[in-house]
Design a protein around this nucleic acid. Structure first.
Length: 103
DNA sequence: TAGATGACTAATA
DNA sequence: CTATTAGCCATCT
């Protein structure tokens, strides 16, 4: 394993997502220079070597929807965490698209 | 090395 | 709205 893995880049970028905002897998992939690698980004987070350092709950799909119960405390906890950061939901599973951005 | 898998995205019906 | 098809890319077996 090299320290400059694709996954390593993903973690680094996810950690930089500002509070109160979220990013899509596609956006992260694009920041890495591979806009088609959204799927690979999801896989990288699935490995999730540092759930305590990586705010994977700020990463959602292109509709602002939470992936599922793969995160630290489950999908429900994830939604609560997002709401605690000032992010509002459009409905039960979809965030308001205005929050989907990096920087 | 090759095939299967998945926390994706887009297009189509 | 949901279901299906297809393309994409890193990781796993």
């Amino acid at each position: 394993m090299r320290k400059n893995d694709f996954a390593h880049q993903v973690y680094k970028l996810v950690k930089k997502i500002p509070k109160g905002k979220v990013a899509t897998y596609g956006q992260i992939a694009q920041q890495l220079g591979k806009p088609k690698a959204a799927r690979a980004v999801g896989n990288a987070l699935h490995q999730n070597p540092n759930p305590q350092k990586i705010p994977c709950y700020r990463v959602v799909d292109h509709l602002g929807k939470i992936a599922g119960n793969y995160a630290f405390g489950g999908g429900l906890m994830q939604k609560k965490q997002l709401r605690a950061e000032g992010i509002e939901f459009k409905d039960k599973n979809h965030l308001k698209l205005k929050y989907i951005t990096i920087f």
